[in-house]
Write a protein that binds this DNA or RNA. Structure first.
Length: 565
RNA sequence: GGCCCGUUCGUCUAGCGGUUAGGACGCCAGAUUUUCAUUCUGGUAGCAGGGGUUCGAUUCCCCUACGGGCUACCA
């Protein structure tokens, strides 16, 4: 059994917590210049130069969990929760576990669990324990832990912290509707429970009869009356709730499964979770969870809480939802997802061409910062700098533009050969077979204009196929009456270039232009138009070299014929 | 409706009683470029409002407004 000491020495007051299972020692007093260590089997302490005895705090090994419900694809907010848990665990040398919370059989979506695991892997957030990863605290799927929850519900009934409730869903619905008609809200709580059908109001004979009869019932938490529950949230600071405002939550459902609240508390305890890091939507249930730990006798070892701010829509009201992505053209899911029911497809960051490192980086900066101007972080840097007290309290609007900017950065970091490898399959798809050396050179020339690998095609297609049409605006502005004539002359110049390399072509071309005293712009834009189809693209002579002498001349000839003023 | 949380440029944020309120994305302008893009330089724009506390409030307290979350035998 865990135990603890409270010691007050030299102005410091430390709570020493330890269990025989997980102990590690960490000196928390950085300022002390002490060099002398005196070991002790349970408590570590040292004496500083001021002859004060300092006790070091001993803590349980950090263990955190990401506990999604497999009701659909993982939302990017969920990935961020997983990320912060992961970073916290790594930062403190602890464990990161994945627990699947599937206590609601009605909402189970096939494939969701696999999707969650694949998403975490793609992001590099690999759990130390959990569904799909094994570990000593399994099983990690709550549906497989069904048998262990009932005893804790019974324990709560036995010690007076819970009770049986026989009210049917229909009866409760009716009460809610009636209250609504009177502009009120029905709540199953300390104010109403004595007027309802439960083990607090029914005789023990009646209760036994109903249970023996197999009547459906739930087990509800008996919320204490009018007491303040105060907890220091690691992100938000002190938060107080009064139990008079809280309802008697169902802990155990009539189908024999626990609700989230019971299962969550029981599992966090059994799995020795030290820190619960989750979304702000759970803040309201924190007092219930704390009261549950207390009622189960686990208060001394219960985890600390940290509630993350939510990710909000880019515009408008509310938190980010699946629809926003469809409407505004960005993914809200890490991976592509096909709804098994409707067949509806939702785009994913991976399939949209985001690099996982960019995705992680942008997620990390949504609600957290290192306290300086650094914007780019590798996973290792995130682990090094991460701290819960630098997590922002307010919700963060997601900005798809900045997301792209992050990806651009990571794309620019990659070398041309690296990107060429990723580009090759796209070229293949387009039916283009090009030598790898050429693709590498092309990528090197156009990559700085790209945010995504997929942009490479749009920026470089003219290296592989001749333009089909010519930009009208450019024609109007730059294609003069004598342009054809001049291009004919240029063709002759190009023909005379023996060593077809960008530098040589440019040299011959420039010499010719100077000799004729033609303005560069007057000729170069039309050539570009002929080679590219519009007035954009890489350096003209690089294009010439890479598409080859014959192709260059052929394209110019084709343009002369096609474009008549 | 009730409870809880929040509020600094359009957006993400720094700030933890005295600052010319800093950075980033976006946007705009200039430079570079034979074009487009990149790049570089510069610019634009903010403490929700009202009361306190204080010599002094973006910063601390209260109220209001606004935003968010929860209010299921869902998580």
């Amino acid at each position: 059994m865990p135990y603890y000491f409270v010691l007050g020495i030299s102005g410091y007051r430390f709570r020493i917590i330890t269990s025989f299972r997980n102990i590690f020692f960490e000196c928390r007093i950085k300022a002390c210049p002490c060099k002398i260590w005196i070991s002790h089997p349970v408590v570590n302490y040292y004496i500083c130069s001021g002859n004060h005895i300092h006790f070091t705090e001993m803590e349980k090994k950090v263990r955190v969990r990401f506990a999604p419900s497999p009701t659909g694809p993982l939302h990017m907010g969920g990935v961020r929760t997983a990320l912060f848990n992961y970073l916290f665990a790594r930062k403190h040398g602890g464990d990161f576990l994945l627990r699947i919370e599937d206590t609601d059989q009605n909402r189970y979506v096939p494939g969701a669990e696999e999707y969650i695991i694949e998403s975490l892997k793609w992001c590099g957030l690999v759990p130390d324990e959990g569904v799909g990863f094994g570990g000593p605290f399994g099983p990690y799927r709550q549906s497989e832990r069904k048998a262990i929850y009932r005893q804790y519900a019974d324990q709560l009934i036995a010690n007076g912290n819970a009770y049986y409730a026989f009210d049917s869903a229909e009866e409760l619905d009716r009460l809610r509707r009636e209250a609504e008609e009177k502009q009120q809200v029905f709540s199953y709580d300390q104010h109403t429970r004595l007027g309802l059908k439960n083990s607090l109001t029914l005789s023990s004979e009646e209760i036994n009869r109903r249970i023996a009869n197999g009547d459906p019932y739930v087990i509800r938490f008996k919320m204490p009356e009018n007491t303040d529950v105060t907890e220091t949230d690691l992100i938000r600071g002190s938060v107080t709730f009064n139990t008079a405002q809280l309802d008697d939550k169902v802990l155990f459902k009539s189908d024999g499964m626990p609700t989230y609240h019971l299962a969550n508390v029981v599992d966090d305890h059994l799995m020795q979770i030290t820190h619960v890091i989750r979304g702000e939507e759970w803040l309201s249930s924190m007092p219930l969870h704390i009261l549950l730990y207390q009622a189960l006798g686990w208060d001394e070892t219960r985890p600390r809480f940290a509630h993350l701010p939510l990710i909000l829509k880019p515009t408008g009201k509310g938190k980010l939802s699946k629809r926003d992505g469809d409407k505004m053209g960005f993914p809200v899911f890490p991976l592509l997802w096909t709804d098994p029911e409707t067949g509806e497809v939702s785009r994913g960051y991976r399939e949209d061409g985001y690099f996982p490192e960019a995705f992680i980086n942008l997620l990390a900066l949504l609600g957290w910062n290192a306290g300086n101007d650094q914007e780019f972080f590798s996973m290792d840097e995130l682990i090094e700098h991460f701290s819960l007290d630098r997590v922002v309290k307010s919700g963060a609007r997601f900005d798809p533009e900045k997301a792209k900017w992050f990806n651009r950065h990571y794309l620019q970091q990659k070398t041309a050969p690296e990107l060429a490898v990723l580009f090759l399959p796209i070229l293949n798809e387009k039916g283009i077979l090009a030598p790898v050396e050429k693709v590498v050179r092309v990528v090197g020339l156009v990559k700085d204009r790209c945010e995504f690998v997929a942009d490479l095609w749009g920026q470089s297609n003219y290296f592989f196929t001749a333009p089909e049409s010519y930009d009208e605006t450019t024609i109007r502005k730059k294609w003069k009456d004598d342009t054809s004539e001049k291009l004919q002359a240029i063709i002759e110049v190009f023909k005379s270039v023996s060593d077809w390399q960008a530098a040589n072509i440019k040299e011959r071309f420039s010499a010719f232009m100077n000799e004729k005293e033609w303005g560069f712009g007057v000729v170069m834009v039309p050539i570009r138009l002929a080679l590219v189809g519009n007035s954009s693209g890489a350096d003209l002579f690089d294009i010439c070299e890479l598409i080859g002498k014959d192709e260059t001349i052929a394209r110019i000839r084709k343009a002369i014929v096609a474009i008549r003023v």
